[in-house]
Design a protein around this nucleic acid. Structure first.
Lengths: 333, 333
DNA sequence: CTGTTAGCGCATTCAG
DNA sequence: CTGAATGCGCTAACAG
């Protein structure tokens, strides 16, 4: 009903060619003579023609759109990761549509429906734990989906990410190697994140008899980290280190410690998880775990496009992460 | 060519009705008897039917998709703002597609083309300064667009946002009222942002004869703020306050000051811009300017949808912001 | 290498 | 209140 912008037919008319030929050059088909291609391109330019994506999608049954649902946009880990996905998709002519779940299964489901309604051909989900309603929906509609931010070989469906449990274990071992025996562990809500659950379990598994861990669950925000720090300080003044399963929590810990007059790392050591950009700037610089956000995004995007185009099956990939030693952990030895 | 998921025809067949009726039900038309509506809804449920967005868009020439281009996703001001836009759009059945420009005009243009290629019906642009190529493109294709994060009554096209210049001026006046006469001003690249330019100008305009401002341009990151702080400290040790045109820069300033052994606010006062979530947690809590990110998002979304549906013209709106007094500015009086 | 012909799935006249 | 018919803009065989 609205104004009509140049359709493929206008270009056809302008060039005296058929719509099929226009379509061919628009899609980079080989079977077009250089001269006609040239002519078509010029006409497109002149008419300011842009193919109608809806018509194209309708005809090909390919929206070239893939969906990602992340818990939050506020942490730059996700920002980096999403940027990487988008970049890879873009390079091959796909688009990313994003939704935020706020860690709520029902919001995730609603977003998924919406994304499906936008024509998403595949889904990138964060974590491996999702409602069966969502998973069933995707299966029923035959929409490929992959789990990220986790690498879990035991999972039935492919996971692309890192070994949260193992990394948390490594972190505990690292602190232990520095002589810390009493450690406060700050983490987000376990009900909200299977990655948090894995980290907590990994930490527990790594704790030997002579080291005691004290877990504090809080909101995954700076405020949460700060509040939990104060409680931990009161309840376990003997703890010499704080392991934070997110840099954001670590930032809150720094603030809480500062307010309590504790020096990092002299009085209390702090270790993070994520390697956010400010972690190298904070005083003292934060020892943390560098998560391979960009690599993860690239891998995910590539696998999905290969699946869509070449029917190559999705498969699990473990990305490696490392502890970045900086100045926030004191060596007690 | 791919598998076919339930089309409107399947529902029609299942219910023994015509596709027109199914369509009516799906679009909430009044002219359907309750019983048929019920029957159709059940069939949709049973067949797991979801209207094909491409077909719908092709037929109506309405993608119900609107685009927003923001400079970065890494600052939660934008996250809040985008969340608000999305929420409002969602409530009326529209979708948001997002692109990041990284403050680069050419990336913005590329994104815009892509978004157009995805069928975006309207654009939300950040700031009022954009390449004429982009603006021409939008005008030529008759795509409505609005500028945000700025309120500039002198602008030819509508702007929805706050008075960057005025707010910066207020900030300077505020610091002056607290007795600060020598002030370091930290800001991002002026070439990248007209909002930064406006803030710088506003600050200059507000500076009376007896107060001197020293401007430092840096990267809009924590690291940039920290680095600039160190330079400023060296070049203007007499300055008693730092006005940061972004909380992120203020965070860097805290770190830089801390490393230099300066206490906030005892030795140096710090004032921010944005009111990010951690600004209340940091020690001392940051005095900053609360930008109306959510209100802005809601306003933008509403105006655009009203334009699309009711042809109501876009118009400029100034959103008010306030200085939030916390503990990072010392009263020298 | 290029044109012809059919739909893709839906919304929308216009009848009834 | 409901159905039949038409076309949105494009791609994909199929001819030639």
């Amino acid at each position: 009903m609205e104004k009509n912008f140049g359709s493929i037919r206008d270009v056809a008319r302008e060039t005296g060619l058929s719509t099929a030929t226009i379509s061919r050059v628009m899609n980079g088909s080989e079977n077009v003579s250089p001269s006609t291609r040239q002519k078509v391109l010029e006409a497109c330019e002149k008419l300011d023609y842009l193919p109608n994506p809806a018509a194209r999608a309708l005809s090909t049954k390919q929206s070239r759109t893939i969906a990602a649902i992340i818990p939050t946009i506020e942490h730059s880990v996700f920002a980096k990761y999403i940027a990487a996905i988008e970049k890879s998709l873009d390079a091959r002519g796909y688009s990313l549509v994003l939704a935020i779940s706020n860690n709520k299964p029902d919001e995730e489901l609603i977003s998924a429906r919406k994304l499906l309604g936008m024509g998403a051909q595949a889904f990138v989900l964060t974590g491996a734990k999702h409602t069966s309603t969502l998973l069933d929906l995707l299966v029923r509609r035959d929409v490929p989906h992959i789990f990220t931010s986790v690498w879990n070989p035991g999972n039935i469906k492919p996971t692309i990410g890192y070994d949260n449990s193992g990394l948390a274990g490594k972190a505990v071992e690292y602190l232990a190697s520095k002589g810390h025996r009493n450690i406060t562990v700050l983490h987000g809500k376990t009900v909200e994140s299977d990655r948090t659950v894995a980290r907590v379990e990994g930490a527990k598994a790594a704790a030997s008899d002579d080291i005691s861990l004290h877990f504090y669950e809080t909101d995954l925000h700076v405020a949460g980290g700060k509040a939990a720090t104060k409680i931990a300080l009161r309840e376990h003044p003997e703890n010499t280190a704080m392991l934070c399963f997110s840099d954001v929590l670590a930032l809150g810990a720094y603030f809480g410690l500062s307010e309590a007059g504790k020096d990092v790392p002299k009085n209390v050591s702090v270790m993070g998880f994520d390697n956010l950009d400010w972690s190298t700037e904070i005083v003292p610089p934060l020892t943390t775990i560098d998560l391979p956000a960009s690599e993860m995004g690239a891998e995910v995007a590539t696998q999905i496009m290969d699946l869509l185009e070449k029917k190559r099956e999705l498969y699990s990939v473990e990305l490696s992460s490392d502890i970045i030693e900086r100045g926030s952990v004191q060596d007690l030895n």
